[in-house]
């Protein structure tokens, strides 16, 4: 199946197409891209796209009602919805330090949910 993508590696923003091609060295044929990094990006986008997720969680006893959080690394893109559901039901108590782990090993990815500020 052919997919159209916009490369985000550099400001060029190449519009490219990618489709499976068993004869190609990496198993995919990428057209419209102008560099190697872009090709790698495109292949990753179709094989195992990942995103870092940032959000907030409820916090009790702090100066603000919400604590900003993020995943310590990128998580599979298709897990974002589930991850938001976990984040939405989380509530933490003041004080929290920046970098403090709030949820461990999300979806067995070795990625944690961490506080992104002290509050």
């Amino acid at each position: 199946m052919k997919r159209d993508l916009i490369c985000i590696v550099c400001p060029m923003g190449c519009r490219c197409s990618i489709e499976e091609d068993t004869s190609a060295p990496k198993g995919y044929k990428v057209t419209g891209i102008t560099c190697k990094r872009g090709e790698d990006y495109a292949i990753k986008e179709v094989t195992e796209p990942t995103r870092m997720l940032t959000s907030t969680v409820r916090i009790e006893g702090a100066r603000l009602p919400r604590l900003p959080v993020r995943t310590s690394g990128a998580i599979p893109k298709e897990r974002i919805g589930e991850c938001m559901a976990l984040i939405n039901q989380l509530q933490v108590r003041h004080p929290v330090a920046m970098g403090q782990v709030l949820l461990k090993n999300l979806f067995d990815t070795n990625v944690n949910l961490i506080a992104s500020r002290s509050l």
């Binding site: 907030t56 969680v57 409820r58 919400r66 559901a85 939405n88 039901q89 989380l90 509530q91 933490v92 108590r93 709030l102 949820l103």
Partner: peptide, 9 residues
Amino acid sequence: KSASEAVIA
């Protein structure tokens, strides 16, 4: 976050 029940971490 209002739609979800709170779980204390």
